[in-house]
Amino acid sequence: MTNLSPCPLECWLPDLRRFGPVHPLRALLQRADRLEDGASGYLDGLAAYFQCRDGMPAAALTREHLAGDAGDASWLNADPAWVQPDLGGARLLACGQLQLHMDEALALAEPLKPVFDDAGITLEISSPDRWHLRLPSSMSLPDFAAPEQALGEDLYEHLPRGQEGRRWRILLNEVQVLLHQHPVNAARRARGLPPVNSVWLWGGGALPLQVTTALAGVISEDLLLLALANRAGIKVQPRSAHTVSGAQAGWLIDLQDLGVDDIAITWWPLLQMQCKRQSLRCSFASGERWLYRSWHRLRFWRWVAT
């Protein structure tokens, strides 16, 4: 999936197992051609559409997209997170998307900045849900797990390992102590919202000099996907009924972050109309891929057989 043809129209969808047998998309797949599996997961899926020379430096890409000042510095995401203690340790329940306002984010970050300053690191609040660390160019980074790898799992199983990771584990512990009794979190609990009691470190690296893709454009609300598209110099559009209805061959419609019911009710009718005009390649977050061509609607025997 690394050398995608500019045709047909692409649609990136959630894990196939989430689509029940009566979901309308299943009828499309019954008439489509099954392709070789592609990449699975969020970051690998992005890497299949966009090629960076040195991995996927999500922090530098999103910082550049939001603030335009990534430069040649090294960056690390420190996204606000919700960690829930349990009998076996603690679980990462959310990373970003915690309904934070900017004033809340700035207030939460205020006591954290001196901790990072002492380590020679600058904490930048790029948006309420996206916090970034500007690192010294000489600082080496251990392997950090992406949020998709750790969500719902034991936090400590996904912290950086070894001596190189030790300093980051200590920093994270200090951050959690400071956030635990923060008045912003007390106010959030009173409103029935989860606390921001940790940060999640991931996506380290420097801004890639070049990002390449075979796509002509993307329709998405995903920050990292939009950052990659802008870096690659292709067109981007917000996700709406108008843009999805008008998408052309070579474009990517990103629906992988949506619920399957939302896709069935809101987006499936638009995709169905697209399938009457042009070919559609459906790529699922779990790796499965199908190609539907407009003439596949004549494969009535497949429908009857099922």
Rank of each mutant, 00 (worst) to 15 (best):
G250D: 04
A39N: 06
L252K: 03
A214L: 09
R169F: 09
L108C: 06
P147W: 00
W200V: 01
V184D: 05
I263Q: 02
L291Q: 00
V236E: 15
L225Q: 14
A67F: 13
S283L: 11
E157H: 13
Q278A: 00
Q181R: 15
R231S: 11
E36A: 15
S220A: 10
S279Q: 01
G88V: 13
L151P: 02
E221H: 15
L178C: 09
H132C: 13
D261N: 10
Q210L: 13
D33N: 11
R53V: 14
L16Y: 12
L4E: 12
V199H: 05
S126F: 05
A107I: 08
D72W: 14
K235G: 08
G68Y: 01
A32N: 02
A67W: 14
L61M: 07
T266P: 09
Q256H: 14
A59I: 10
L76T: 07
I170L: 13
A27H: 10
A232D: 06
L92D: 03
L270R: 08
P238Q: 02
G45T: 01
I125N: 03
V236M: 11
T212P: 09
V199I: 15
P136E: 01
D261A: 10
D79H: 08
V184Q: 08
L93H: 11
Q278R: 00
W303G: 15
L252Q: 04
E164G: 10
Q210A: 12
Y42N: 03
K235W: 15
W295I: 10
L35D: 08
A285C: 09
L151M: 05
E124Q: 12
L133R: 06
W268D: 09
G204W: 04
I125W: 06
T122P: 05
L226R: 12
A59F: 07
I125E: 02
A94V: 04
W82H: 14
P238C: 05
D86P: 10
V199Y: 06
E174N: 12
L258G: 07
W290C: 01
L207A: 04
R302H: 14
R130F: 13
L93K: 15
V184Y: 08
F50H: 05
R169T: 08
P111F: 04
D37S: 14
L270N: 03
T306Y: 15
D129L: 03
P21C: 06
S283K: 10
P114W: 02
G259H: 07
V304D: 11
A145C: 04
L298N: 12
P6D: 10
A206F: 07
L223F: 12
Q274L: 06
P111L: 02
R166Q: 14
H65I: 09
L123M: 03
V236A: 12
I234C: 02
D257H: 14
S40C: 13
H101S: 11
V244C: 03
L25Q: 01
M102R: 13
L46P: 00
R299G: 09
P269Q: 04
E148R: 05
A27S: 15
M1S: 15
V218S: 04
Q272K: 11
L61P: 02
R34S: 05
A229H: 00
V260Q: 08
G88A: 15
E110C: 10
W12C: 13
A216P: 06
R297Y: 14
L108F: 07
C282S: 12
F284L: 03
D154G: 11
W267F: 00
